[in-house]
Amino acid sequence: MKRSRSNVRTKQTLSYMLAGVLILGSYSTSAVSSSKVDPCEHINRKLFVFNTHLDNYVAAPISNAYKWITPQFVQTGVFNFYNNLKNINVIVNDVLQAKLKQSAQDTGRLVINSTLGLVGLVDVARDVGLEQNDEDFDQTLAVWGVPKGPYIVLPVLGPLTVRGIPGAIFDTAANPSSYVGAPVQLLSMLNTRANAEGALKFIDEAALDPYVFTRESFLQWRHSLATDGQSQMTSDFDDELLDDSETLSISPASKNNRSDLTLSLSEYIKKFEQASQSFSTTANAFDQIAKSYENVSEKLDKLKN
């Protein structure tokens, strides 16, 4: 297990979908507008920098110390323990998404690991072919038709979408480890950070722009989870290639003819427009999400009646 861990982690991070993106947010430089997906990019980038520093100077040293003093089998046991608790949340969301067969499998997984697996310390269920499923309330909301809303980076918590906020609150409430003392929660955070090590290393090594890399991989990964991997396999960018021959609307020569005053004025106007667009996009997204909640609530009321 120990022998292959670092290498295997690196390879797994090739999927870019890992917990590492949940830890970080990004580096500086002013934003090229990323349209509707990331209307608050300039703020998000600052928070990403903050989270990166926080990770470098606080979380990483503590996590490294934890890994250094804790034997591998204990780390694996801790990981399995928290992973097993997460199954309660997975089962609830299986049911909310009407994945009844999967909920039965996940219940079997929880029962086996909680008993034969010594309160979840050993992942016995995997050995009998019950793989861990990944379900959460954000995915449930996606299945119910709630749009994801804009991408945001929260201090300490990292990347999220607006839909992910109620998702995270629900998931925290449904996880038993949220109701025990601070030491257990601290160990849970340590475990999360320690297991994200490979992913963070991969981002550091591969990303030309860690902010964009984290954002895109996070959004794609979440979309893939929400659609159970069935999303747009056939999109092939050909339309974009066809557009390659389009001529530029503004030539470099015409740019040079502008006076400095005009340039700086237009820059201010552009920034102002970007900012106001950002706010209106965010507001629209909140409106859409609120409407979706209303629809979901109406449907639930009808079901009750």
């Binding site: 999927s15 870019y16 979908m17 990323s34 722009d209 964009v212 890399f213 794609q220 990964w221 991997g229």
Partner: peptide, 17 residues
């Protein structure tokens, strides 16, 4: 890889830079 498109990821990064 696991639902994450390498092409889309690089496209966002490279055009941005």
């Amino acid at each position: 890889a696991n639902g994450v498109s390498d092409l889309a990821l690089k496209r966002s990064e490279y055009t941005n830079i």
